[in-house]
Nucleic acid binder design. Sequence first.
DNA 1: GAGTGGTCTAGACCACTGC
DNA 2: CAGTGGTCTAGACCACTCG
Lengths: 242, 242
Amino acid sequence: MSQASPVFSPLYRQIKDLILRELASGEWRPGEVIPSEAELALRFNVSQGTVRKAIDEMAAENLLVRRQGKGTFVATHNDPRAFFRFLRIVPNEGGVAVPHSVPLECWRAKAGQEAARLLEIPPGSPIIIVSRLLEFGGRPVVLDEIYLPGETFQGMTLEMLQESQESLYTLFETRFGVRMIRAEERLRAVAADRNSAERLKVGEGAPLLSVERITYTYGDKPVEWRRGLYSTVSHYYLNELS
Amino acid sequence: MSQASPVFSPLYRQIKDLILRELASGEWRPGEVIPSEAELALRFNVSQGTVRKAIDEMAAENLLVRRQGKGTFVATHNDPRAFFRFLRIVPNEGGVAVPHSVPLECWRAKAGQEAARLLEIPPGSPIIIVSRLLEFGGRPVVLDEIYLPGETFQGMTLEMLQESQESLYTLFETRFGVRMIRAEERLRAVAADRNSAERLKVGEGAPLLSVERITYTYGDKPVEWRRGLYSTVSHYYLNELS
DNA sequence: GAGTGGTCTAGACCACTGC
DNA sequence: CAGTGGTCTAGACCACTCG
């Protein structure tokens, strides 16, 4: 017998996809409540338990946030609890220090081979490059160079970055409607070149932690590529494995 | 009114704790099946749905593994899918290469201040120190120094490590009844000293990725402290953020 | 008190495994 | 075929939030 296609998609996954579509379309925006479980159950014509299971999975993936008595909300980076979700740097001693972002430059360019491949855009498409410093307690710790697809981030300027009091990803959400949901980081140890040594106030050739990050939005679409150089003298990169 | 203690523990969490206790006590061993949901429901005198929710959480925490039609199993490191759960090193190009462990030394010592603090044992207690090299395709990539509480790992020898065909954590499970369930890694960039440069075949002073890991077993008890030096020339450390 | 998510139950049926 | 986990339902009640 010829094999039937083995796709069996449970109801709750189909519901999940429907909710996902609303999120991706921007119909329900970051920080907003989504309809109640009861209403979604009615709308989709399934039981509340099925809606519940769909939302459960999405909450586990940090796409939604449940708050008992209030409702279910679209996750946002503008939430203190979400702030360190993608930033794994921690001071050697002392509690959590809030970093301060210092935008250095913002310019336009055309995507080279590597940027094009990683951002999944045609080579030569417009991109925006941002460099900035992250300081903890006034001391430089991370030097970032950030590559963004020009089409998605049209209108980004250095002034915008400098004036913004929010985190970068919050800015992306509010000004460009782009929500970061997942990232991959590739870590290496490298020697500081002249420029980064100067910026990070370490000796030339000093060992730095190189962190390359590709960040994805809905539908596994890459929308950011960045390379950070971390000075790991008074801070370290913390990773919890489970 | 004086505040009542705000502990409200749902039934399924109490069930979870009961199951956890069985795991911690070694009653149900790694790789074995645990009783079926129906049987547990009977035994604990709750509905199957409640048992199910408890197991759901534990499966999400990699403590249990469900297999439809077969049963629910105690998670083990002796499972190909679990192999890279704690080892985040990946070759720059090419698929997954299986590493080869080369035990170098194994000796006994007394815990110093730092080891005692991290392993939560009294200073001066016996510890075992293992050093070993991890090779990919015959080339050295990781140099590990591993500190173990002597009491838990009594009888560990270099020969045992050399003869073992399994991964270190599999050996810990089968020979010492210790299952690793969670770890914290602290990453820094450092310069290679003479010894590690030689072992890893890089120049003295070359940048290396320093990975300090504390590994915990049931009950958040630390049972391993290790420091790895990673050569990130042809490999990198991959971290997925979500 | 009305509305939200959170827990618990009981039962029906489906998908997968192995004898 | 029996036994396992996986899905779906319907309904009751609890805990939390807010007006």
